[in-house]
Design a protein around this nucleic acid. Structure first.
Lengths: 240, 240
DNA sequence: GCGACGCTTCGGCGCCGGCCGAAGCGTTCC
DNA sequence: GGAACGCTTCGGCCGGCGCCGAAGCGTCGC
């Protein structure tokens, strides 16, 4: 039966294109390179080849395909070609695949809970891992934030707290809520969106964290260790 | 240099697992079957084989791999085996891949804008396509909802509107905000999360929409056509 | 100007995975 | 009880893809 011109139509070619995009990620060397770029940085082709443990020729071929499909962008700088994740959509897709990988059944569970990435890392533009989850938990504990499914609502106390910590909350005050990510390593939530990005950027500005040179892992500095304990009540030992 | 026991460690085995999950989606026959299940329904293996245009043996092998990896679950009912998407994470991953596929560069753009799926479909548990986007736009127009990146905030007027339409807003009132999805077919937002689900379920309850028997497409009934015009100011012609 | 470096292109090889025909198992209907 | 149906398992074939050595191009440092 038909309504208003609706017809029964196959979704064939969309599935083919979805398969093509997923297949680009579904090859270990390419996945390594994409995840290496996962924290938003730009890396040269040689370094990506090393990440993936393949030769420059192999890496070059893979990167060409990723670029043609729009998953990465490339900028030439002298003899170097710097690659980066092309869009937030691509980064989100990688996190989504990781979220699925993290909840795979124990029988085939081979997802390596890398202690360093579990402890603190960036999730494209915000903090993730145990640090990200601990900050989220601390904000919930002091009722700065209320979790509701995939949304985190910032309370009036929360705005005051963030402001006293030094974050400019003028934009957050307009819409005191943000997205959360399901953290694949902890299987709990960390803050994403406007609040998550603001916290990440503020931790960098305070030099509480440093970005690892060649990994998504994030280093917590001694200053950061003290600050996390003082401001959030987070002991570094609880992140290990 | 090291801080607090942090060590430089490769992310090798995580990438391998991400590649394995993505590769499961990255094969056209499996992608067809997964997308066929994308609206949350359960389908028997034979029907999935037909969706993917492969024999029962081929479909059986693919489904076994999907089940082993935890992407689908299976329930036996007599001689039939009914498969469904295993979790919200898997559904989100499929949407994330589709979002990337939709924004691929024009040079390799082969994503088929299926008119039926573009018009109205379900996105796992909420409305998507032109209908989903039109409802979102209408709510923004009457200031029932304010968009802020990936978050949609429900205003006081919005709560009143939804309540007068017949939705129980007691839960939404607690946290008047929800997630949005980037609609791959329209490249604009539609409402997901609590509000998106509530709207989808209410449209079903009012019999404004019907689920298509073997597709993610959603049928808009004559009752729905009138209701959409009356309540939301949406003409069916603007959805075609 | 020349050598070194970063990276790309070309061509070839080997392996893996998707396919289906045949056979088999469990369930249902007559 | 036997035929039909839904689906799984087995075995084999074939095409595609990932790999790298060799060669080449553009850039940079001395």
């Amino acid at each position: 039966m038909r309504y208003a011109g609706l017809e029964e139509v196959s979704i064939v070619s969309n599935a083919d294109w979805v398969a093509e995009i997923a297949a680009l990620v579904g090859e270990p060397a390419r996945a390594h390179m994409l995840l290496a770029l996962g924290d938003g940085r730009a890396l040269p082709a040689g370094e990506l080849a090393a990440c993936a443990d393949v030769t420059a020729q192999t890496a070059s071929g893979h990167l060409a395909r990723l670029e043609q499909a729009g998953l990465v962008t490339v900028v030439r700088q002298g003899r170097h070609r710097y690659y980066r994740i092309a869009s937030v959509e691509v980064a989100s897709m990688l996190e989504a695949v990781m979220a699925v990988a993290a909840v795979s059944p124990p029988a085939v569970m081979r997802f390596h809970a890398d202690p360093v990435l579990q402890e603190a890392r960036t999730c494209y533009n915000h903090l993730a891992g145990r640090l990200g989850v601990a900050i989220c938990d601390a904000l919930v504990r002091i009722r700065a934030v209320v979790l509701d499914g995939e949304i985190a609502h910032v309370t009036t106390e929360g705005l005051a707290f963030l402001e006293s910590w030094g974050i400019n909350v003028s934009r957050i005050r307009l819409h005191p809520a943000c997205r959360t990510c399901i953290d694949w390593s902890e299987r709990r939530h960390h803050l994403a969106g406007t609040v998550g990005i603001a916290i990440h950027e503020h931790c960098l500005a305070l030099q509480w964290i440093e970005h690892h040179l060649d990994s998504r892992a994030v280093r917590i500095t001694p200053t950061g260790e003290r600050g996390l304990r003082t401001v959030f009540g987070i002991a570094l030992t609880e992140l290990r």
